[in-house]
C-alpha cells in the first residue's frame, strides 16, 4: 500500500499555551524531492520531526495513506547531528536490519556492501564515535537507507560538511531518489536546494509560507519574504 500522499491539516506543535509551529496545512504528493528552506529558527527541524511522527501534535491531524504502523516502518530520518550508537561502524549499519529480524551474518554482509557504497569500508571495525563529522553523516545516511525506506527525511545533512563531502552525500541521495525513495530534506545551502529540489517548502515563523514547484519558486517566488530570502536578505 502506498504511503503517500501525506495529508496534514491544521497541525500545531506547542505546549502550555505556547505554540511554535503551525497551523500547517500541507499535502505531500508521491513523487520527487522536496526541499525545506527558511531562516534559522523558522521551524524546519520541527516540521520534519512532526511529519516523521517524532512530535506530538497539539492540534490538527497528520495522515499517511496507509495504516500508521506500516507508515512508521517505511520511513527513516537523518538528524541534524548524526546519532552514533556505541558500536562499531559495521554494527551501526547492521542495526536496522537486525531490528527487522535478519540474522547476524546476513545483516553484516549487507552492511558491508553498503559501507563500500559510501566509502567507509576501511572503517568497518572502528568505533562509530571515532568517525569524523563527514564520515558520521555518511554512516547515518547509509543506516537510514539500508532498509530502503519509501520516505526519507533529512535535516540539514550537509550543514557541517565541505564541498567534496557534500557532493558525495548528494550523489548517494540522487541514487536513492532514482531508485524510488521520496526525499524530504531541509538545507541552508541554496545551491544544494537548486540542485536537488523538485519542489520547495519555504518555512517562516513556524508556518509553511510558500509551497511550490522548484522552478517556479526560484524564478518567481510568490511572496516578498521568499524573494528577500532568496536574495540573501534578512527575513523576519
Amino acid at each position: 500500500m502506498a504511503l503517500l500522499p501525506l495529508k496534514i491539516e491544521g497541525a500545531c506543535l506547542g505546549r502550555r499555551g505556547r505554540r511554535w509551529i503551525g497551523p500547517v496545512d500541507l499535502e505531500l504528493a508521491g513523487q520527487g524531492t522536496t526541499i525545506v528552506i527558511g531562516p534559522n529558527g523558522s521551524g524546519k527541524t520541527s516540521l520534519l520531526r512532526m511529519m516523521h511522527g517524532l512530535e506530538r501534535l497539539r492540534e490538527g491531524s497528520l495522515r499517511w495513506s496507509c495504516p500508521l504502523e506500516e507508515a512508521r516502518r517505511k520511513q527513516a530520518f537523518v538528524f541534524q547531528t548524526p546519532i552514533m550508537m556505541r558500536r562499531s561502524v559495521l554494527d551501526n549499519l547492521a542495526y536496522p536490519l537486525r531490528l527487522g529480524g535478519m540474522d547476524r551474518k546476513a545483516a553484516q554482509a549487507e552492511a558491508e556492501a553498503w559501507l563500500d557504497r559510501v566509502d567507509l569500508a576501511p572503517a568497518a571495525r572502528r568505533d562509530a564515535l571515532r568517525l569524523s563529522g563527514g564520515e558520521r553523516q555518511k554512516l547515518a545516511l547509509a543506516r537510514a537507507l539500508i532498509r530502503s525506506p519509501e520516505v526519507l527525511f533529512l535535516d540539514e545533512p550537509c550543514a557541517a560538511l565541505d564541498g567534496r563531502a557534500t557532493r558525495e552525500i548528494e550523489a548517494i541521495l540522487q541514487g536513492a531518489s532514482t531508485s524510488g525513495t521520496r526525499l524530504v530534506m531541509s538545507t541552508h545551502d541554496m545551491g544544494q536546494a537548486r540542485r536537488l529540489a523538485d519542489e520547495v517548502i519555504f518555512v517562516l515563523g513556524g508556518r509553511v509560507h510558500e509551497y511550490s514547484p522548484a522552478d517556479r519558486f526560484f524564478d518567481q517566488p510568490e511572496t516578498p519574504q521568499a524573494s528577500a530570502f532568496l536574495r540573501g536578505d534578512i527575513v523576519e
Binding site: 517524532l54 516502518r73 546519532i83 550508537m85 556505541r86 542495526y95 536496522p96 531490528l99
Partner: peptide, 28 residues
C-alpha cells in the same frame, strides 16, 4: 544518559520496547 543519546534514533526506527531495552543493555 544513554537513552537521552539514543531516544530520537530508536523512536525513529520504530523499535519496540523490548528492542529498546535490549539495545540499551547491550550498548551500555
Amino acid at each position: 544518559e544513554l537513552w537521552s543519546d539514543y531516544h530520537d534514533l530508536l523512536i525513529s526506527m520504530n523499535t519496540t520496547q523490548r528492542q529498546r531495552i535490549a539495545t540499551l543493555l547491550w550498548d551500555g
